[in-house]
């Protein structure tokens, strides 16, 4: 079935159609959750919560072509809330997880560097480089003009460069 048809049917209350829509999106959603929450259990919980929220308000999706970005936006909102919550609880799992992987590989380095840069820029970089979203889609998801996204991206990469350079100096 075409995605648009699935959305229409899901909006009419067809659970099978809704389930299929979630099937189509689940990998992407899980990966996004993983990139923010870094924990499989939390990512699964995020998927459940996003399903829950999407099911409750799927009727609010007026244009089918925005369905994917709409779902991703729900996921991002959830991840942001979770991160805030973890901070409030003093839950250091995100940072600890990184710390525990003693291998200071480039991967860790770049992730640590990402943590240090402005959150808007970080978000754009994660969505673009980790999740292959186009600037236009990112603009839709974050509800900002494309020019803003481009600026954030540029600033983010610039800041990343500085971070990485600083690190390599420290490692010498």
């Amino acid at each position: 079935m075409e995605i648009i048809e699935l959305i229409k049917n899901a909006q009419k209350g067809d659970d099978q159609a809704f389930y299929e829509l979630m099937q189509i999106h689940k990998i992407r959603l899980l990966k996004i959750a993983m990139s923010y929450l870094r924990n499989e259990g939390e990512a699964l919980e995020a998927l459940q919560e996003v399903t829950f929220r999407a099911y409750r308000s799927i009727k609010k999706v007026h244009q089918a072509e925005y369905f994917s970005t709409w779902l991703i936006r729900i996921m991002l909102n959830y991840c942001h809330d979770q991160i805030q919550k973890n901070k409030r609880y003093g839950d250091k799992s995100l940072i600890e997880n990184i710390g525990e992987t003693v291998d200071y590989s480039k991967r860790i380095e770049i992730e640590e560097a990402l943590e240090k840069i402005d959150s808007h820029s970080r978000e754009v970089i994660i969505l673009k480089y980790y999740h292959d979203l186009k600037i236009k889609d990112i603009a839709d998801i974050l509800d900002k003009p494309e020019s803003t996204i481009k600026t954030w991206l540029y600033k983010g990469l610039q800041a990343l460069r500085e971070q990485l350079e600083e690190r390599s100096e420290l490692n010498v």
């Binding site: 389930y19 689940k26 899980l30 919980e45 459940q48 829950f52």
Partner: peptide, 17 residues
């Protein structure tokens, strides 16, 4: 496990509705 999470989310939403 992923599908389970989806179904659980749907179940909760239906119950809530």
């Amino acid at each position: 496990i992923a599908n389970q999470a989806i179904l659980e989310g749907m179940k909760r939403a239906k119950a809530m509705k």
